[in-house]
């Protein structure tokens, strides 16, 4: 089949809402788009372990330490499924990590913000994972089979993470004045970056055209962001947290919240490397990846030795 015939057959499948599987023929651009998106998603899970890991040794109770460790372990596990899903498209994990280190591959901007007090652990679970779920629920119907199936598994765990994050915030809002102040401080710092997680406004979103046509993406950035805002504002009110947006108000006519303008200047700065933790996150990943090289080499040498014996 020539390229055009392949593309037509492929699009026909997509239009019938059939999943694309690893052995199916697919346009090169579709494959590359997915590698970019899935590896970015995998890297986000892995880099996200850093701001949360920052509080493990200071978690204030045995239960909270257990929950936090289990959660971070889940995130690492998500990284593993996603790396495997991307590997079905003909790229190795090692190559993806190289692309991360060279800056070719990105990870979610949100993890370039620091986790500064214990309530940040609550805010990350509630807001960051909450925003991620909205996006990932939509991705459960994405056209590439391995990615869609990874999302189904991941969504189950993320909704648990979101609940535990909200529980931390709710408990702190029931606590001492100092705890309430920590919770509000975390809210103030994480709210806007969480809204930015959905990406630019639809009118400014450079990768959306083909993503919709190929049904990689099912719903637009603005639609998903609105869904997140509407559910989260109510949750904040229940526990007495205020949303740091003076323009936020209920729009009776549209039956949703209007919100203030997002600081896209900050968004672009952070995407381009100028966020509070960009350099730190990458340096950490590179340092420990390099420090582990001798372990990976030893494991490979040992395996080779065993294979030779058998």
């Amino acid at each position: 089949m020539d390229a055009i015939a392949i593309e037509n057959a492929f699009q026909e499948k997509i239009d019938k809402d059939l999943n694309i599987e690893p052995k199916d023929q697919m346009p090169e651009k579709y494959r590359l788009h997915l590698i970019r998106q899935i590896s970015q998603h995998a890297h986000s899970e892995v880099i996200g372990m850093q701001p949360e890991g920052n509080w493990i040794t200071r978690a204030p109770s045995l239960r909270s330490k257990q929950i936090l460790l289990a959660k971070i372990q889940d995130e690492g596990g998500h990284g593993l499924y996603l790396y495997s899903a991307a590997e079905t498209l003909g790229i190795s994990r090692e190559e993806m990590i190289e692309q991360l280190h060279s800056g070719k591959a990105k990870y979610s901007n949100i993890f370039n913000y620091p986790s500064l007090n214990w309530a940040d652990i609550g805010a990350i679970g509630w807001l960051v994972d909450g925003a991620a779920i909205v996006n990932q629920v939509s991705l459960q119907r994405t056209s590439y089979g391995p990615y869609a199936r990874a999302m189904v598994r991941i969504c189950k765990e993320e909704s648990f993470h979101q609940r535990q994050g909200y529980e931390i915030m709710a408990n702190m809002m029931k606590g001492t004045n100092e705890q309430k102040a920590m919770a509000q401080d975390a809210m103030n710092r994480w709210w806007w970056p969480s809204l930015m997680m959905f990406g630019p406004h639809d009118s400014d979103s450079p990768n959306s055209g083909n993503a919709f046509k190929w049904k990689i993406k099912r719903q637009s950035n603005d639609v998903l962001r609105q869904r997140f805002i509407d559910k989260t504002v109510q949750q904040a009110e229940v526990i007495g947290l205020s949303i740091p947006d003076k323009d936020l108000k209920w729009n009776e006519e549209k039956q949703c919240y209007d919100h203030g303008e997002i600081n896209w200047e900050e968004f672009n700065q952070v995407i381009n490397g100028n966020g509070p933790c960009n350099k730190q996150r990458m340096a950490h990943h590179i340092k420990y990846h390099n420090e582990g090289a001798w372990v990976r080499e030893a494991a490979a040498a040992y395996q080779k030795h065993i294979n030779e014996l058998n």
């Binding site: 892995v46 372990m49 850093q50 890991g53 493990i56 040794t57 330490k65 257990q66 460790l69 289990a70 971070i72 372990q73 690492g76 596990g77 990284g79 593993l80 790396y83 950490h284 420990y288 420090e291 582990g292 090289a293 372990v295 990976r296």
Partner: peptide
């Protein structure tokens, strides 16, 4: 638990934190 995000490979990061748990 200090190994979190510092393992030589992701699988070992998970294994060591699992033991910590």
């Amino acid at each position: 638990s200090e190994w979190c995000s510092k393992g030589p490979i992701l699988e070992e990061d998970l294994a060591l934190t699992n033991i910590a748990l």
